[in-house]
């Protein structure tokens, strides 16, 4: 849905995250939600109520629609979560199960 204005010089795109098992290139210092908005499948979860797909809506932490599973952290707002190299992100499908996350 979105595109980068400037393609970074080599090294600026150095971060790679794992989104549902697929490697996705990201810019150091950007949020998981902003990476997601450049993906063809720009949605982050299916709701617990009706399995409807949702995507980031407000990008500033007040709608909680961009909740995604971050390995080692649990369910976080993707718009408030900054990428790290090798970070594993999963789309949250339906209700979450209780598992130890930290």
């Amino acid at each position: 849905m979105f595109r980068l204005l400037e393609q970074g010089r080599s090294g600026e795109d150095a971060v790679t995250i794992d989104l549902d098992g697929q490697p996705v290139r990201a810019r150091a210092g950007e949020t998981v939600a902003s990476v997601l908005m450049r993906e063809a499948e720009a949605w982050c979860r299916a709701t617990p109520v009706s399995q409807a797909r949702r995507a980031p809506y407000c990008m500033m932490g007040v709608c909680f629609d961009c909740l995604m599973l971050v390995e080692g952290e649990g369910l976080l707002r993707a718009c408030q979560t900054y990428v790290r190299d090798g970070m594993k992100i999963r789309r949250q499908i339906g209700a979450r199960h209780v598992v130890p996350s930290c």
Partner: peptide, 20 residues
């Protein structure tokens, strides 16, 4: 609530960083 509907403020945040 559909993916692809977002606020103008959200788009402006994406404009400021990382510049999309």
């Amino acid at each position: 609530t559909l993916p692809g509907v977002m606020t103008v403020g959200a788009a402006q945040i994406l404009l400021k960083a990382p510049g999309t």
